[in-house]
Design a protein around this nucleic acid. Structure first.
Length: 637
DNA sequence: TTGATTCGGATCTCTCTT
DNA sequence: AAGAGAGATCCGAATCAA
């Protein structure tokens, strides 16, 4: 029994130095952000209009919307029409502009392509599953045509299709589910196949405990039908078995599949032409999930300082905390991955957020959580949103033809000297400005590797401490490791400000602090987010396989925290008994947080992008298992 | 159809330690 | 000399937006 490595009680929170000596001129800005003052004063609460502390909205507002991808001219035009006082209406107008292109005249009659106002509709629809209450019509979550006539026509079509499916022996639930999933315009055969697919997928070959929310009502029928209907996909190819196969794997609690409360309308309007659909089907195993479209822009449910229309999502009863949970992974995972993850996590819609709306570097991530999403609070000391805000000293050598304002995703490795030297040679032997072909090559490499200009014709990768700064970590947080290791650990971590935005709702809910179960802790992005929010961590059970990462967290903990840190190296060792014992010992967990390994999901993995069943990414199922075990242990009297 | 983006990995060489 | 560890240098494709 060596699992519990360390229990630490530290009482000194003032000695840690965020700032290293001899920083370049940007260090003052960095120091400002890294003044690690926890507590209410670090928070900026938004007023009812969504403006932080009633902040004036003029220039920063325009910049904020421009940062979201809206042309400044249109922002100005929108402000002329709406004024500053109603950001929700303004955003809606901008989205309408975007939807309609330049045809502004029709704005008044059009709903936007992705606004969360549809969420409640879908929510209602889905909540029928949670409540087992079918007495309401599922409704049509979204439609471009908003006229009454169009609406009635669609409802009539829908009724016809529901009746057809009822005649075939499907239940009203299933019929509604298929229409929700495929759209009311989908041909009948598409609806039938979607039911066939979801049933066979839902049954898959997983055995063991079952958390079927249908309460067994349909199970026998599903078992029988899935066997029968799998034939339509030509046999039993079930894909490769995961390393976890020897362990009983609970089924997802529901098999609702693609009907996601809180998810965007595009989810339910995916319609493929028959041929494309057939082609698509041929390339998928019966277990493949429907793809989940990503929102564009990827702004999550709301952003600091720019509140969208108030989003109120209703979670399934089983998903409601305690414990609260927070799961993170790459947004651009292989097709169907997020649908599957969501299916395992109460069918909660992922919140897709690109951190470029929070900081100066892109980081497209999906977050599934059961946290409230209203009344989020922004950290004081907003992170820089552009490259020059973050590193003003680079402006000196930045050529005018490099138009980057933000970095791409910070990965786990950086460019070698060979690349930067090649760039230097090419530029030195070119005219000034260099010819378009050279510019194109240089820019491609700069974007690919996040290179910065550090001298005449000279580019260089970001330093590890610059990674730390951009990702919201204290400067020198990972110092002491090799550079290679620092890049790797940082590249695998959270963007702290983004996560803090989501977790900020816990501040008022747990004035006495939280007990945290932290899975795949890494270098402690979640813990640092909580700390920067001024949320006291009474206990953190941290599960992290890498000794270097554990050491970094331990060092940070000892210098900033007064609570108890318990480290567990291997997530696989955290069985139900151990979880029950921890729950007993600490009185349960308030937060279960973690981002499971993305190795097999990430686009830059050329060798083993094997999806959720890959060697590392399949550890997601441990997150799922552990969450359910915690919930189960906490439910016991 | 094209272009842009992407929490990576295998293998080699170099350096340091024993 | 052997081994360990760090760094360097290769290596496309899935996915999505335009």
């Amino acid at each position: 029994m060596v699992d519990c490595i360390i229990i630490t009680d530290s009482d000194d929170s003032d000695e840690f130095e965020w700032e290293s000596d001899g920083e370049a001129e940007s260090s003052s800005a960095r120091a400002m952000r890294n003044l690690d003052v926890a507590g209410p004063s670090t928070l900026v609460r938004q007023d009812s209009n969504g403006w932080a502390n009633g902040e004036a909205a003029s220039t920063s507002l325009i910049e904020a919307y421009a940062g979201m991808g809206f042309p400044k001219e249109r922002v100005l035009k929108g402000i002329k029409e709406i004024g500053y006082n109603d950001p929700n209406a303004l955003l809606e107008l901008l989205l309408a502009y975007k939807t309609l292109g330049d045809d502004d005249t029709a704005v008044g009659n059009c709903s936007s392509g992705f606004m969360p106002q549809h969420i409640e509709d879908e929510d209602d629809l889905d909540s029928e599953y949670w409540d087992g209450d079918n007495d309401e019509d599922g409704g049509e979550p979204n439609s471009d045509g908003s006229s009454d006539e169009g609406f009635l026509r669609k409802m009539s079509e829908k009724d016809k299709k529901i009746n057809s499916l009822l005649d075939m022996g499907y239940t009203e639930d299933e019929a509604n589910m298929a229409i929700t999933r495929c759209g009311v315009d989908a041909p009948l055969f598409v609806l039938i196949d979607s039911l066939c697919t979801s049933q066979s997928a839902g049954q898959c070959e997983v055995t063991g405990r079952c958390y079927d929310s249908f309460g067994g009502r349909k199970k026998a029928r599903l078992m029988e039908e899935s066997k029968k209907k799998r034939k339509c996909y030509g046999g039993g190819a079930q894909g490769s078995r995961s390393p976890l196969d020897e362990e009983p794997m609970p089924l997802p609690r529901t098999m609702v599949g693609f009907s996601l409360p809180g998810y965007m309308p595009r989810t339910v309007s995916r319609r493929l032409p028959k041929q494309a659909w057939m082609k698509n089907k041929r390339n998928q195993s019966p277990l493949d999930e429907e793809p989940m479209p990503l929102p564009n822009p990827m702004v999550g449910f709301n952003l600091p300082g720019v509140m969208l229309r108030t989003v109120s999502r209703r979670l399934p009863k089983q998903a409601i905390g305690p414990p609260y949970f927070y799961f993170e992974n790459v947004a651009l995972a292989p097709k169907g991955t997020w649908t599957k993850i969501s299916r395992f996590l109460y069918d909660i819609a992922p919140e897709f957020l690109d951190s470029k709306y929070i900081c100066a570097a892109a980081r497209k991530r999906g977050y599934i959580h059961n946290l409230p999403i209203e009344s989020r609070v922004e950290l004081l000391g907003r992170p820089p949103k552009t490259i020059f805000e973050a590193f003003p000293h680079y402006e000196k050598w930045w050529p005018y033809w490099d138009h980057r304002e933000q970095f791409n995703c910070l990965l786990t490795s950086v460019a070698s000297a060979k690349i930067t030297e090649q760039i230097q040679r090419d530029l030195a032997s070119s005219s000034n400005p260099p010819p378009p072909s050279v510019q194109e090559y240089v820019m491609k490499e700069c974007k690919k590797w996040n290179l910065v200009w550090v001298g005449k014709n000279r580019v260089a990768p970001l330093e590890p401490d610059e990674f730390e700064y951009l990702l919201g970590f204290p400067i020198d947080h990972t110092r002491g490791l090799s550079n290679k290791k620092r890049y790797k650990s940082l590249g695998n971590s959270f963007q702290v400000d983004s996560v803090a935005w989501h977790l900020s709702v816990l501040k008022d809910m747990f004035p006495n602090g939280v007990n945290v179960l932290s899975l795949f802790t890494g270098i402690g992005g979640g813990e640092i987010a909580l700390h920067r929010l001024g949320i006291h961590m009474r206990t953190v059970i941290s599960v992290e396989i890498d000794e270097d990462n554990r050491r970094i967290l331990r060092r940070w903990w000892n210098q900033t925290q007064t609570g108890t840190l318990i480290e567990i190296p291997d997530v696989k060792s955290l069985n139900d008994d151990k979880i029950a014992s921890l729950v007993d010992r600490f009185g349960g967990f308030d937060l279960v947080i973690g981002g499971s390994p993305c190795n097999n999901l990430a686009g830059s993995n050329r060798h083993h992008r094997d999806g959720l069943e890959g060697e590392h990414s399949s550890l997601f199922y441990h997150y799922f298992n552990i969450l359910y075990a915690v919930k189960s242990a906490m439910a016991r009297p």
